[in-house]
Amino acid sequence: MSDEIILDVKNLSTVITTDRVPVRIVKDVSFQLRRGRTLAIVGESGCGKSVTMQSVVKLVSRNYHITADHVLYRSFRSGAPKEYRLDKLAPYGRVMRSLRGPEISMVFQDPMMSLNPVYKIGDQVIEGLLQHNPGMKKREAWARALEMLKKLGIPAAEQRINEYPHQMSGGMKQRIVIAIAMICDPQIIIADEPTTALDVTIQSQIMELMKQLQTEDRKSIILITHNMGLVAEMADDVAVMYMGRVVEAGPIQAIFENPLHPYTQGLLKSVPVLGMARDKPLIAIPGSTPNPADLTEGCEFAGRCPYCEAACLRGVIPSFEAEPGHQVRCLRSAHGEVN
């Protein structure tokens, strides 16, 4: 039962046009989110993780062109499941607005991008609550907001709720943004780097809170993060992205214990661990990220790949199923010559 799919994204692509030059940022991305589970999305900085999620919830500006076979959201909120084709909905139409917040909620990466510097913290947290619960008294909303801030471990919450964003530390701002996303009790939380500004104790406290919601209420989480420790603790499934594509996806065990794509392998080798030798340079994937505008065909990782062959430079590399549920976009997995 726990394997019901709540969000199903099939071949999502996003083209962003700047100065009349269109660039494909997200390319044929497919993934499925199971109810009550956590999907982690990892990948290189700038590979399109945030744009993918913004495209799913349609919080984008006019220079984005989004296409998809389908983006299917299945709401289990009231009684029988109800399906919505998010790709068919108008980004700022009535239905989409009614879904964003109470059903699907997003925690944005840069807190200051979603906080308004001139409003009090409390007013920003209750805004969604009042909007989606007509008839709710401001007093009640305020009390709920206060409770949420306390749950997130903000000290002196009664005082803080009346303050402004500039008076907060980085980690406090981040928790305010999490509070805004969680206050309407959404079915899916998309958390984009939610804990970069948090110390490890508060990070684990917030992750415990999310896990608790997940087991009690069968919430689903999409966690975008660079922190592999967090992925190991939280995720059920992982999707690895590189230059706009999902290059590898599967259950966490498969990705961590049997990574098949050379990018995933390189990424996992670069993970810092406590107690590293201080006199040696850190391991990084050699080479640098290509400019997305320069890429035309072939594997996006070819230029940095130790196993690159002529065939890797042509066409679109398809995705292969290496083992049940474990997909890899790499020709080596087609040959079966995997180490």
Binding site: V42, G43, E44, S45, Q109, G170, E193, T196, A197, H226, M228, G266, L267, S270, V271, P272, L282, I283, A284, I285, T289
Partner: peptide, 15 residues
């Protein structure tokens, strides 16, 4: 350097 590398993937962070 205030959280100067926290938004980077581990490979670019290492670089």
């Amino acid at each position: 350097c205030d959280e100067a590398v926290s938004a980077l993937d581990v490979s670019i962070q290492a670089q």
